[in-house]
Design a protein around this nucleic acid. Structure first.
Lengths: 113, 113
DNA sequence: CTGATCTTCAACCATGTGGTTGAACGTAGA
DNA sequence: TCTACGTTCAACCACATGGTTGAAGATCAG
């Protein structure tokens, strides 16, 4: 697991904004232009363009220029890596009863006071 | 999927920092005090304390005060929700594009506001 | 009580974020 | 050509982030 931590930072940061998550969702339905991504948001094209650049720098979006349009598509790899990072902790909410028991116990102590 | 978008923002933001991911990893090995979380980082206690607060506000960490120590434990729910958000796109990198498109469409209808 | 320990708080600083506006650029179409 | 379109860039703004330091609050040990 040779995670590039800076890239992981960028991916989670990119996902920490609702507008950008909306763009990811839209792109998961197929390629579209920056304008297509900007339209459902109520901000300026410039602002939407910046969001696309954040996704791009996180490696989550590819862009190709076609005439005057910039066509974006989703690159799934960083999403998969982020998902793998999280699934490491799956043992907390599934399957590993010992750890789960500890968590529950801590929770009960907290509620007692 | 009744996502509180602000909470999702906070969870991904909390994960977008290597120091905080390290704390999550450490906490996954069991409860520990703020000091225990601060020690492996090379920053001041105050800085580490702020990081813990970010995790707390994201709902990922519980704290109970025991004497002069603040004992932290991992709360798995927000991690699970983030993981579910991501795994929604698993179909994307697993290659079943038609199915993804259909699921996305259904989800967008559900989230219409 | 005294002093050490664990933690937070307040103030400060440099830098980043998310948005705006207005200008500029390249391309498409009349 | 001239105009409209899609996009970015540059400058700016308010606010958040991630770090520091120094002081202050509790709590424990002697």
């Amino acid at each position: 697991m040779v995670e590039d931590q800076k890239e992981v930072d960028r991916v989670f940061h990119a996902l920490s904004n609702q507008t950008r998550r909306g763009m990811v969702r839209q792109l998961s339905g197929g390629e579209c232009s920056v304008g297509d991504l900007a339209r459902p948001t109520r901000m300026s094209f410039a602002a939407a363009s910046k969001h696309v650049q954040v996704l791009e720098k996180a490696g989550m979006v590819n862009r190709r220029v076609e005439g005057r349009q910039h066509i974006c598509s989703l690159r799934p790899d960083p999403l998969r890596e982020a998902s793998e990072w999280l699934s490491f902790y799956e043992k907390f909410w599934a399957g590993n009863l010992d750890r789960l028991a500890r968590v529950v116990e801590a929770d009960m102590k907290k509620e007692k006071k």
